[in-house]
Design a protein around this nucleic acid. Structure first.
Length: 882
DNA sequence: TCGAATGAAAA
DNA sequence: TTTTCATTCGA
């Protein structure tokens, strides 16, 4: 340990830091440090955050924190003492690994890091020079920045430490590595704040804890909202809720939700009290994270919107048990209020019976629950944040996959509850209007500004004002959902409407726009798919629903929470009559639930849980795939943001990191498919199998499904043409092309072909240092014959894969069930598109399992043939599964 | 704590 | 030329 202390200089606070821990030894260097740009965000928020952080005694860094210079200082200090050393900057490969590991893990949940690393190495090897160049440049830039920050930095600290002892230290440091970010953050924050608080840095440091980081990052990423909320809750007094609303543009409701959810609130409210135990103020994040732990990872992946939702939900989750005590009340109340007001308006309209919702919940729950599991973990909070992090993750994973832990339910509900309310509101209105389509949009907008509505009268009026933004967000979701419903009739329109919604949202929400958009985008596909899968019901019921709902609306909301836990067959039964029309509520809930699950899965990035839920997988991939397929690819921003999720980066840094992340994110993230295509490596195949399904969904975002099909054909045709030229196209890198999905696919295809040749070369050619090369030879998974046959070694792997697939079936089943419920054989088309993606994936899997040729199937899929197959195959599969 | 990869820097 | 170490996180 360090002691840094001594060395450190840290003054008083240092003492605190003194406790600190060894972490400091290696501070990670963060590019931001050098830059230290302050975030755009209000500093205040940051400060508060810091303050909160501060509470935690952190490390010494404080000093470093004070000024950017400090960074250098730290570095120096580091030199002085091993303690402070900055971490060496990551090289291109590491950056690549960092960026893609999650993907690999997603694809191969079972795969451990080693395996993942191997795969990554393979990918890296396959990666074209131009592509690599990006990472190389990034690494260089990173290094340069690092060096600037730490002029005297020596790669090998002091005398090479004897491997072990130093190593240990290092290892420790590594884990703490995050601390570095924290430092950076501090620095950054410091730069901003420097003058203000010395202590702040310390806090940041605390944040540094991986655990916190995750949580914070999540929160931060989610948006300043959380921060804002904190401020508010914290009573910083600086900004009132209204102010916050202004800043964030959030709706009051939203804010409330956040607050309720937010630890800060808990903290304040309960701060000293038990709540804290659940989530300490500093730990708040942890607290959140704990419950959300699964989320954390996901958060990375998620879009801001999701994060927000999570936050709200998480808050509730975190406290789940506690929440009841502390948190939820406010949110729920608000929701109720809103509902009531709207209900009044809509009275005529109607609401669905709780029953339906419950039933839906139950369905959703299954999938969702797994991810949501957070609750169980909560206990851990007491433990240090770090512990929380790791522990939780595992838990999450475990839970995610199977679990059905009771606690989960609450989470879901909560998350859904908040949004549900809004969604319900919208839905109701929409129903009343009777038009889900474009009109809905308008409706939602109107709602957004509830002022007009009678409800305004209520105390909620204020809230409403603020709400609009939040509502908008929700709306988007709702709209999507609604659309989804409507999709039954008009699938295509949905997208269009979404787009329009987005546009609207943008106008209204300045700050959050991006985030929302992202979220929206993400959500859209999910929702649509989910809804479709579920099989939405007949549109007819809608009107009816409205009527019934009126009365029950409130109850529904409340019930929702309670019901979450319990499926409540009763409700289903009673309302079931309406069953034909699953209420919009259900959908909403489901959709939300889906989202939640997705989030968790996504976050996890790893685990097979994703596979379990199609939607989840879709989402996860979506993000990634987006890069490829989406035209959006051109817009790094969105992608980046979404990607930001990927990076678990520290919450504190949030802002700073964001910038850095942007850069980092800007780095192309290649889909497994790409690699697969490029390299036929078996491993990749596996991924591809998974990926394909996932990717398919992605496209959804962009073009409508129908369009996709068309595109597909186009692509195919293009592909053929291009193949000839392929050589040039080899790169097949994803996103770079603005052209979007089509291009991506095409590229991949072309790349595949061309790559195959090159790939082989690559494979043959030694990639890295010769040393490594030797090791590489060891790598079996890569081995593959030109034909695609597996080498013996591969065979083993294949087996493994098969097994993996075996595991997947459950997922499929679940999907199938869902679909079956929702989809009627005939309904197909609307559902088919979304469903089919997932199905396609399933089909692939099935193929894999059944076929020794699985490989081929995969390759096929990769090429895009799958798409053709997908529609049909899925059905078959579904049947089989069932 | 190891390991699996690659790369950069130091020894 | 060889070592370290950077990231990641399951065994």
């Amino acid at each position: 340990m360090k002691g840094g202390g001594g060395g450190k200089e840290v003054p008083v606070e240092g003492e605190v830091s003194g406790k600190q821990r060894p972490k400091r030894k290696c501070l990670q260097w963060h590019p931001l440090l050098s830059k230290k740009k302050a975030l755009d965000f209000s500093e205040e928020e940051e400060e508060e955050d810091e303050e909160e952080l501060e509470k935690v005694p952190v490390e010494c860094p404080e000093r470093s924190g004070q000024a950017p210079e400090c960074v250098a200082m730290d570095d120096d200090g580091e030199e002085d003492s091993s303690e402070q050393r900055a971490r060496r900057p990551m090289n291109a490969f590491l950056l690549f690994c960092k960026r893609h590991r999650s993907l690999v893990r997603q694809e191969h949940p079972r795969l451990d890091n080693r395996g993942a690393t191997k795969i990554l190495a393979d990918w890296w090897a396959v990666l074209e020079p131009s592509e690599k160049q990006k990472y190389t440049d990034m690494a260089k830039e990173y290094k340069d920045a690092f060096m600037k920050a730490n002029p005297g930095y020596k790669w090998c600290p002091a005398t090479s430490k004897p491997v072990k002892s130093p190593t240990h230290a290092v290892s420790n440091v590594r884990k703490k590595a995050w601390s570095l970010p924290s430092n950076n953050t501090k620095d950054i924050t410091v730069a901003k704040k420097v003058p203000k608080t010395d202590s702040t840095p310390q806090l940041n440091f605390a944040m540094a804890d991986p655990t916190k980081m995750g949580g914070l990052s999540m929160l931060l990423l989610a948006g300043e909202h959380a921060l804002t909320a904190r401020e508010i809750s914290s009573s910083s007094s600086q900004s009132g809720v209204a102010d916050v609303a202004k800043h964030t543009g959030k709706s009051a409701l939203f804010q409330l939700a956040e607050i309720s959810s937010c630890p800060p609130e808990l903290v304040q409210g309960c701060k000293n009290s038990e709540c804290r135990s659940a989530a300490a103020p500093q730990t708040e994040v942890c607290g959140l994270s704990q419950p959300n732990s699964p989320d954390l990872p996901s958060s990375c992946m998620r879009s801001p919107l999701f994060q927000l939702a999570e936050i709200s939900s998480s808050g509730s989750q975190a406290s789940v048990s506690e929440v009841k005590q502390c948190g939820q009340s406010a949110l729920f109340q608000l929701a109720e209020m809103c509902l009531a007001s709207e209900a009044e308006k809509l009275e005529a309209l109607s609401s669905q019976p709780a029953m339906d919702s419950s039933s839906l919940c139950a369905q959703d729950t299954a999938p969702d629950t797994s991810p949501t599991m957070d609750l169980p973990t909560p206990s851990p909070p007491s433990s240090s944040p770090i512990s929380c992090k790791k522990k939780k993750k595992p838990n999450d994973v475990a839970k995610g996959e199977k679990s059905s832990g009771s606690p989960k339910k609450p989470c879901k509900k909560r998350s859904s509850s908040g949004s549900d309310l809004e969604s319900l509101m919208y839905t109701i209105e929409a129903v009343a209007k009777g038009a889900w389509g474009s009109e809905e949009m308008e409706t939602t907008r109107k709602r957004a500004r509830p002022s007009g509505s009678p409800a305004d009268q209520r105390s909620t009026a204020e809230k409403k004002k603020t709400k609009p933004k939040a509502k908008k967000q929700l709306r988007t979701k709702e709209e999507e959902e609604e659309k989804a419903e409507g999709e039954d009739c008009k699938p295509l329109e949905t997208e269009g409407s979404l787009l329009s919604h987005e546009a609207e949202l943008k106008t209204e929400c300045k700050k959050e726009e991006d985030i929302k958009l992202d979220s929206v985008e993400e959500s859209e596909p999910h929702l649509s798919t989910a809804e479709q899968n579920k099989g939405v019901d007949p549109g007819s019921p809608l009107p009816i629903k409205g009527e019934e709902r009126d009365l029950e609306v409130k109850p529904v909301v409340i019930q929702t929470e309670e019901k979450d836990i319990e499926p409540k067959p009763e409700a289903c039964g009673s309302r079931k009559s309406e069953r034909s029309c699953k209420g919009a509520l259900y959908k909403t809930l489901v959709s939300e639930g889906m989202l939640t699950s997705l989030r968790a899965n996504v976050d996890r990035g790893k685990r097979g849980s994703m596979r379990g839920t199609v939607s989840e997988s879709e989402i996860g991939w979506t993000d990634e795939s987006c890069n490829f397929s989406q035209p959006a690819a051109s817009n790094p921003k969105k992608l980046k943001k979404s990607k930001s999720k990927d990076e678990p980066v520290p919450g504190n840094l949030g802002k700073l990191e964001e910038e850095f992340e942007k850069k980092f994110n800007s780095l192309p993230q290649y889909s497994p498919l790409t690699f697969d295509k490029k390299s036929t490596a078996v491993t990749k195949r596996k991924k591809a199998s998974v990926v394909n399904p996932l990717e398919n969904p992605t496209p959804n975002k962009g073009p409508s499904p129908s369009q996709k099909k068309t595109l597909f054909h186009k692509i195919v045709s293009k592909y053929k043409h291009k193949k000839e030229k392929a050589g040039t196209l080899d790169k097949a890198v994803a996103q770079p092309d603005p052209t979007a999905s089509d291009t991506g696919t095409v590229k991949s295809d072309s790349s595949c072909v061309s790559l195959s040749t090159e790939t082989r070369k690559m494979g043959d050619v030694p990639v890295g240092s010769q040393k490594r090369k030797a090791r590489k030879s060891k790598i079996t998974h890569l081995v593959r014959t030109a034909d695609g046959r597996l080498s013996p070694a591969e065979a083993d792997k294949v087996k493994e894969l098969t097994q993996d697939q075996d595991g997947k079936p459950l997922t499929h089943e679940t999907l199938c069930n869902t679909q079956s419920c929702s989809t009627d054989p005939g309904s197909a088309e609307s559902g088919s598109l979304p469903a089919f993606f997932s199905l396609a994936a399933l089909a692939e899997v099935a193929a894999m399992e059944n076929m020794h040729r699985g490989q081929r199937a995969v390759s096929m899929a990769a090429e895009g043939q799958v798409k053709d197959m997908a529609p049909q195959t899925p059905v078959l599969i579904s049947c089989a599964d069932q």
